[in-house]
């Protein structure tokens, strides 16, 4: 604090509260909307205060079926989302750790070339080459499978760069000492590198989990079987219902449940999350 200006402090708090309120506004409305029966939405406007149909809707969405043409329950789709998110997260971390290890601690021909190949994935987001990627996955027979949901997304230049940076910052005396004590590449990796990069891995885990859970376009085009629907993409299928009205109360309950796990991760592991965001941009 440089100087005491009470009115400015007041303006500061007021602005922040306004910001917090604006950011929370849509979630508040969604919560209110999910507590009213579907019939409440046709008649003019969404009621602004909670109704009494909430428990029923949430129970039915969680345990029976999400509705609007989706036969699976939200709980079931949450499990699918969890499998996909964890598959992508562990996959990315595992293969990136290995490739960063190879690039930093070994010398071999085409080392830089390999690095550039991995770098190129940064320039090829799945959205811009969606049609040919779909064809490749279809040719390999991976449509409607968990392999198809996760494997094509696990190459990661960002994670490889991050681990490379971590490994490069490890003092070479440590490596030498380990070598002199007779540690081979495997022992060195598991006993020294992994413990040293533990917090970086955890921070990246948070970011990648959010990335994996929020996948939308990819699951949307490669799954046509209810058994593989993930929660985020199911919203789109629920919105494009052709016969009858959209049941907004169910859609809002499902939307809130779909955003709950990643939001809980951000709030619960805020320190790691912030570290992960900053690390990933280095």
């Amino acid at each position: 604090m440089i100087e005491n200006r009470p009115w400015l402090t007041f303006v500061g708090h007021a602005t922040l509260w306004l910001g917090v309120a604006l950011v929370a506004l849509p979630v508040w409305m969604a919560l209110v909307a999910s507590t009213h029966p579907a019939s409440a939405f046709g008649v003019g406007h969404i009621p602004l205060w909670f109704g009494d149909a909430g428990v029923e809707t949430w129970k039915s969405v969680l345990l029976e079926e999400a509705g609007n043409g989706i036969e699976s329950s939200v709980t079931f789709m949450m499990l699918n989302s969890l499998v996909m998110a964890l598959g992508i997260t562990f996959g990315k971390i595992a293969i990136s750790l290995l490739s960063a290890y190879a690039i930093v601690f070994f010398r071999f021909p085409f080392r830089n070339f390999c690095f550039w190949i991995i770098f190129m994935t940064l320039m090829l987001p799945v959205e811009v080459r969606i049609v040919p990627t779909y064809e490749v996955v279809a040719n390999l027979g991976l449509l409607n499978s968990f392999t198809g949901l996760t494997l094509p997304l696990i190459a990661s230049a960002t994670a490889t760069f991050l681990f490379r940076q971590c490994f490069l910052s490890i003092p070479s005396e440590l490596v030498e000492a380990a070598r002199i004590d007779g540690a081979g590449p495997f022992r060195f990796f598991f006993d020294i590198l992994l413990p040293l990069t533990r917090t970086n891995i955890a921070a990246l885990f948070v970011i990648l989990f959010i990335y994996g859970w929020n996948q939308y376009l990819w699951p949307l085009i490669i799954t046509t079987d209810n058994a593989y629907y993930t929660l985020v993409m199911s919203i789109k299928r629920m919105l494009s219902v052709t016969d009858g009205d959209i049941e907004w109360n169910r859609i809002m309950a499902t939307t809130l449940l779909a955003m709950l796990p990643p939001v809980a991760v951000v709030i619960g592991m805020q320190k790691l999350f912030v570290k992960g965001l900053v690390d990933a941009e280095k």
């Binding site: 293969i95 990136s96 290995l98 490739s99 190879a102 071999f108 190949i117 190129m120 490889t160």
Partner: peptide, 21 residues
């Protein structure tokens, strides 16, 4: 060994990134 370590990443990159591109 380094090639073995790089293999998974390179394989995924080649099949799902470079081939479609």
């Amino acid at each position: 060994l380094p090639w073995l370590l790089l293999l998974p990443q390179l394989l995924v990159t080649a099949v799902f990134f470079l081939w479609p591109a």
